[in-house]
Design a protein around this nucleic acid. Structure first.
Lengths: 254, 254
DNA sequence: TCAATGGGAATGTCCGGACAATCTGACTAC
DNA sequence: GTAGTCAGATTGTCCGGACATTCCCATTGA
């Protein structure tokens, strides 16, 4: 007896370009993701089984599985043994990636402005030295920035970087984000350790951010590492909670 | 000419049990992870190439690749084409999973205590109805809890759940976390949308948490979904920033 | 009416092989 | 000496197949 629901991938224009340098599994994953995004593949609908799908596309089953697997890891699909592969109902946003505040804002359509307050070399404090893995008192870059949105201050960012890693040009810092500069310098960002908390603003901080003294502020500390394990950045950030909050999606690792 | 560095996996007692129901790739991944954790595989060291490793273990290359891949996704290993697979230097902690505050505290060795203040059924407010996808005014469970550590209040947790999903026993809620109860009820948690911010405490909140009025509080809102996309929980939490902050590790998706 | 059984269907695991893409380092030519 | 070139090593991609495991559901039996 045929299944009641028709395989929704049948109506899709799926097909891969074998002459393309883009891997086949990636091409398929992109097409499926686009179909989900576009609503062609409706939430809850079952994808046809892998073997049949592979045959229809002229691909092998491992290749199709690899494509599906990548979407499962993105949280777009759910697989169940004995049942099939289903499109997840809930709308999935980005699962909290390591991006700069600048990129976040730009993606949200807001045009962030940056004012570099300090861009210099200083001796490392004990805290900075420990975070960056350099000797206390050794030279490190220090950057202080004020991030503005709609002309109003939104965040006060203090970052320390180990010496000799990157040229910190004030103009570039104002035009783009720190992470983008680091990536452009050939640094492969790998992981970051973050801590988010809250505290009352000091008089100095309050003035910089345009808040009353003692106002609640959102704080974030972050140490970023490249793929060799080197600490490449240590940041201490202050956000105005009325202007900014951390929004993200978590996926349960099964 | 032989390579200068000896393959560090040679000195490992690697071996799989083919009679075990645990998948072979998973057994291998666990052994490699244990070796990294234990320091037998030192950071920066290169694992021998996949093909040789597969041959030595009597496994196929895809199986070995699958094991390595899972550790790459955990951030423990880094692969580079033409070079090899390397142990990451930086110590990786959990990459921010979806766990309850209760589990977090327990893992940290602190024995959390929970006081259930309210456990009842209420009509859904507009906000709760929207988050849970139920009709406004429809019945939902409401749970208010106070989380204590060392006898001092640490967080005030308000959660709403759709009706008929789970039996909320006050005794159980005080003995364990909400997520653990949900999982035990057969609910497959899939994803959550979170928002972390800060604000000043109201008089009522301040009293409950033992803070002065207007003190900065860390706030977290979270909607949790199961793998069918149903909202299964909506929580609004308040934390004392002197007692709690969000700590986690991010991995860069390449 | 309800519980136990069993078959079909789908994903999960594993194999062995082949070729491509990329990086490193040594060699060569200038 | 320096830059370009080439070969070896290693991971990335892809194939086709085999069997195991799990879930759903219809059938069967009490």
């Amino acid at each position: 007896m045929p299944k009641p629901g028709v395989d929704p991938t049948l109506s899709l224009e799926l097909g891969v370009d074998r002459s393309s340098p883009v891997p086949l599994y990636f091409q398929l994953a992109q097409q499926l993701e686009a179909a989900i995004e576009h609503g062609t593949l409706t939430p809850g609908s079952l994808l046809g089984n892998e073997i049949e799908l592979a045959g229809r596309l002229g691909l092998s089953r491992p290749t199709v599985r690899q494509a599906i697997q990548s979407l499962v890891e993105k949280g777009l699909l759910v697989r169940r043994r004995g049942v099939g592969t289903q499109v997840v109902h809930s709308r999935v946003r980005r699962p909290l990636e390591l991006s700069s505040l600048y990129d976040d804002l730009e993606a949200a359509g807001r045009r962030p402005a940056t004012k570099v307050l300090v861009n210099t070399v200083v001796p490392a404090s004990a805290e900075v030295a420990s975070a960056l893995g350099v000797a206390e008192g050794g030279e490190v870059h220090r950057v202080e920035r004020l991030r503005l949105a709609h002309g109003e201050p939104m965040a006060y960012l203090v970052n320390h970087l180990p010496p000799g890693l990157i040229d910190l040009d004030t103009g570039q810092l104002e035009a783009t984000g720190l992470y983008r500069l680091m990536r452009a310098s050939g640094i492969t960002l790998h992981s970051a350790r973050q801590s988010i908390g809250a505290r009352a603003a000091t008089a100095e901080e309050a003035e910089r951010l345009g808040e009353p003294e003692g106002a609640p502020l959102l704080t974030m500390e972050r140490a970023t590492f490249d793929d060799t394990g080197r600490a490449v950045e240590f940041g201490t950030h202050l956000y105005r909670p009325s202007r900014y909050s951390f929004e993200f999606q978590l996926l349960v690792r099964s």
